[in-house]
Amino acid sequence: MNISEPIRLLLFLAGIMAFVGFNAAYLVWVERKGAARFQRRPGPTEVGFAGLLQPIADALKLLSKQVIVPPTSDAILFRLAPVLVMSPALMCLAVIPFGETLVARNINIGLVMVFAFGSINVMAIMLGGWASRNKYAVISAARVVSQDVAYEIPMLLVVITLLMVTGTMDLNQIVRQQAGWFWHWNLFKLTANPLMPVTFVIFYICMLAETNRAPFDMAEAESELVAGAFTEYAGMGFGVFFMAEYANIVVGCSVATVLFLGGWQSPIGVWSGPWWFLLKMYFLVFSVIWIRWTFPRTQFYGLLNLSWKILIPVSLFTLVLSSIMLKLF
């Protein structure tokens, strides 16, 4: 296709924003429907067919509400935090390859880009909690930091393990290496590292913790902290935080799909394309929702112990094992 560069970039910009917005809106619907089905009730049914217009109605309600900035809060940071929590997800999606040519900007260090901008997320939630000047929000902010710092380490260790196997940080290149049948995916690359499925599980757990999803949703533990860092936010300020949570889930699942599940490659070797990427990504997203409504919230000490006592040693072991395998074979 002969589209000039600025028009292509604008198209991708609009496309990514639409993708994120659509996902954030409709994953809320999926979450509510899924939660309802797991609990044997119908979920939203009133607005539109099977409640399909519910997210639009919610958004309109949130938009029409007054955005209240508490007088004791730090007004600038308070308003800045929702923007800051949403924008990294948009930046990350710019380098995710949806298909062989369907990628906004294919840079050869795409993996670093995703993790660099992903790390801003912590700061955004923390600033939101801090600027609120609310005891619950500050506790939540402190929890977010200790949790995300704890889980960033095993996540990066796992990614380094994978990096040693692939030898490139170009996300599209990583996907191309996984062509063919599904046992060519990095998840099943047992000849490179026999513990590859374990690294995927560690990555998945860390992703759950980084996106603050149950069973690790310490930041907004409703029964203890009202709504955590978002307690003081009203109207669309809260709505943006809510959207950002789903946007981050989409980014996390996309990265997991690209790194471990072969991205846009077909599992049977033919008809590769973006549809496979979306299928795998939405399967992971569904599993995230599934886990949320299946497992209860863990204790905070349990959460930190899991990271420092189990995940970090295991991921270090996979790292060493992978380097030994790399040297021997």
Partner: peptide, 14 residues
């Protein structure tokens, strides 16, 4: 960005 914004600034705020 990864080190200074993601790690150092977060540590300072903490």
């Amino acid at each position: 960005i990864l080190i200074y914004v993601g790690a150092v600034c977060v540590t300072i705020i903490f």
